[in-house]
Computed example of a mutant assay.
Amino acid sequence: MDRETRDMLLETADRFFTDRCGREIVNNVEKGIWPAELWQAIEEMGLPHIAVPEDKGGAGGTLADMLALLRLAGSHAVPVPLAETALANLLIAAAGSEPKGGPATVALGALSLSGGRVSGRVERVPFATVVDRYVVVVGDKLAVVGKGAAACAATPSHAGEPYGTVTFDRATAEFVGESPVNAERAVELGAVMRAMQMAGAADRVLAIAVEYSKQRVQFGRPISTFQAIQHMLAELASCVAATIASAEAAARDADEGGLAYGGSFSIAAAKSQASEFAHRIAAISHQSMGAMGFTHEHILHHYTRRLWVWRRDFGSETFWGEKIGAAYAKAGPQALWAAMTASHYAHPA
């Protein structure tokens, strides 16, 4: 979709998330209450099908459109599997099938696929207990498995969202097809998805901390005037800026390079960067807000706890750092600088 259409979509989605994803909804999800009306409204808006071609029942958007929406969702701590379903639907459409309605998630790990049956176990699958189907990628094949064909043990994340361990015991797939996105690439797409969500959440954390520092008065003046707080917020702002910049570059490179292979280095760098800074962003924001930031009643934890969880999803900073190091150790000393500056986003006009 063109830039004007995307901006209109994001503006509409921003208003919707502001109105419908308040503190009560997010807290209720932690209590096991599925927000059915919220999910229904999200589906009616077509958001989970944003990157699905129109001839397969989607909105006809691009990977970049989807990632921009997910950054916005991250800034609102949207407590439903919008990101996971959007990615699952994109992968299903790329494999030649038309995605069904309902929530879905991706289960990526050491799985096997033979004769239309999936075997293996994947831990920490996002929203595993509330989705209708799982999308798995084994080699260069994609399979869709209905929830009833797999066993799921609930293991809620630290953000209170319904994660789980999914076991496939020769589970019969609803659909199996050749996929232009192989298993390794699917993990990369999951990583850039999380990097964009983390960018949105980090940006919101900064805004919350800055606003609080302006409102909180101590010794007769706002704490934003104290040099110690200013130093904290300056460091927080630099961590957030780096997280956003790397995520945006990865999203652009991934979109422009193509669904099957584009932006691999940028994605690895972005997810490593976002995951590494997640703990500093959370620590500084809570420290700058003092006791208030640690209360359950305040919304700050909606974002910081998700940063902690997303830090590990689809590869931690250690995972992606090792990937980068191994690749360039193998390629030789001349490859690193060329790869780092390959994106035209590294050369601003």
Rank of each mutant, 00 (worst) to 15 (best):
R3E: 15
R6M: 08
D7P: 05
D7I: 10
E11W: 09
T18R: 15
D19R: 14
R23D: 15
N28S: 12
P35H: 06
Q40Y: 09
A41G: 07
A41H: 03
E43N: 01
E43R: 06
E44S: 11
M45F: 11
I50F: 01
A51G: 05
K56N: 08
G58A: 05
A59C: 09
L63G: 01
A64R: 12
M66T: 04
L69Q: 08
R71G: 10
R71E: 15
A73G: 07
V78A: 03
P79F: 03
A83R: 04
E84C: 07
L87Q: 03
N89F: 06
A93F: 05
S97E: 15
E98K: 13
P99E: 05
G101K: 11
G102V: 04
G102L: 07
A107M: 05
L111K: 04
L113R: 01
G115Y: 07
G116Q: 03
R117W: 09
G120E: 06
E123S: 12
V130Y: 07
V130N: 07
V135C: 04
V137E: 00
G139D: 06
L142H: 01
V144Y: 02
A150T: 01
A151E: 14
A151R: 10
T155D: 12
T155Y: 07
P156W: 00
P156L: 02
P156Q: 02
S157H: 00
R170K: 13
G177L: 00
S179G: 04
E184A: 13
E184T: 10
E188Q: 12
G190I: 01
A191T: 04
A191G: 07
A195P: 02
A199P: 03
A202D: 04
A202K: 03
D203C: 09
R204V: 05
V205R: 01
A209G: 14
A209N: 02
V210K: 10
E211V: 08
E211W: 10
K214I: 10
R216L: 09
V217L: 10
F219Y: 13
I223P: 01
Q227V: 15
Q227N: 14
I229P: 04
H231T: 15
L233P: 01
A234S: 14
A237H: 11
S238C: 11
A241P: 06
A242N: 11
T243H: 01
T243N: 05
A250V: 03
A250G: 03
G258C: 07
G262Q: 07
G263C: 05
F265L: 14
I267L: 06
A268Q: 11
Q273D: 13
Q273T: 15
Q273N: 15
A274C: 12
H279T: 14
H279V: 13
I284K: 07
H286V: 08
S288D: 06
G290E: 06
M292C: 13
F294Y: 15
H296D: 15
L300D: 00
H301D: 15
R312H: 15
D313H: 11
S316T: 12
T318G: 15
W320P: 04
W320S: 08
G325A: 14
A327P: 00
G332A: 08
G332H: 03
A339C: 05
M340E: 14
A342Q: 10
S343L: 08
S343T: 09
H344L: 13
H347N: 10
